[in-house]
Design a protein around this nucleic acid. Structure first.
Lengths: 176, 176
DNA sequence: TGCAACCAGTTGCATAATGCAACTAGAATT
DNA sequence: AATTCTAGTTGCATTATGCAACTGGTTGCA
């Protein structure tokens, strides 16, 4: 009863949009998940140093802590290095992919995106729910250790990465 | 040139997800848009008093100002009342609907939502892109003044509202 | 004409979140 | 033994949020 009351009073409302914003409604949480999902960053230092937006280490530590508490990500020891922690997406985190796809599509249409950084969003938008499902299966294999189906050719993330590299290379050539 | 530099330096990165978070990445902006979209709140006092989460007037004023500056909403005088302002969604704002649908679906699956406040998300999820398109057409008519197609029966928002009322009534009956 | 209710906010102040730079402490590498 | 790599922490300044009271004007009604 007391626990139930606390549960109720801990939230502004039981609206799914509000509850989602209570978990992810800030400027950094989804950036961290994005880097894990699309950039395959699994360690603290990768998330910190390779982050495009320049997240600060204390903010990153705080967000990892919160996402962990919310069950969006999980954390385990890296057997190859006693000090290394491996962060993984949970099923709850993996299922954020359709939200990213929609946000990416909206941002690409209405905001001043750069070509290189929005090519992934474009591919994800054009691929539609089938591609999202394929990517989510790939993420389950990588992050949850579920058995992977036999696949021919590169995975979704690899295709997204290759498209990104291609744009970067093309722009570099055009600038010279 | 200087303006272009400012444009570039004003953003953390040109990633569509990041740019979207710069506009909507806080705990209140999407709540305000949600109330305009699903609750048909068009005046300051409606948004303030009927808000489920208890938004404060200074926060509401600030968010309306920002959303206006970002072009997500528009503002005009109410001809029937000199002091009344009417807030409307722009096309940019209306096209947030698929994001709301995805966020609603995720929140409904993973967070402690209440039945009454999540029935709309359920209907929107079950209706899929066709229902979203129908709702967006309705919003264009209401907010942008585009000519409405002839329609038989209640609109999408009305159906969502009726479903909500039904759950509330059923729960009230069950509690007595 | 006067008064209450309504309108869109603003103001002041306390608390919380963010951002930056430097720093810690243990583990692996050379 | 020294350097580098690991995941963070700490202190401090700035900014955002939240609450409650308040403002200046408008409208409706007696």
């Amino acid at each position: 009863m007391a626990a139930a009351m606390e549960e109720i009073e801990a939230h502004r409302s039981g609206c799914p949009i509000n509850l989602t914003l209570e978990v992810l409604g800030d400027k950094w949480s989804l950036i961290v998940v994005r880097d894990m999902m699309f950039g395959n960053r699994r360690h603290f230092r990768e998330l910190l140093s390779q982050n495009e937006e320049g997240i600060a280490s204390n903010i990153l530590a705080d967000r990892l802590r919160r996402l962990l508490a919310e069950g969006v990500i999980s954390k385990e020891d890296d057997p190859s290095h006693k000090q290394k922690a491996i962060y993984s997406l949970t099923e709850k985190g993996i299922e954020l992919l359709p939200i990213f796809a929609m946000i990416g599509a909206w941002g690409r249409k209405w905001l001043p995106v750069t070509e290189a950084l929005s090519i992934r969003a474009q591919i994800l938008e054009e691929g539609g729910p089938d591609l999202w499902a394929e990517f989510m299966e790939e993420l389950r294999w990588e992050h949850l250790g579920t058995p992977a189906k036999p696949r021919t050719g590169p995975g979704v993330r690899e295709r997204l990465r290759a498209a990104y590299e291609e744009v970067v290379a093309r722009n570099a050539a055009a600038a010279s």
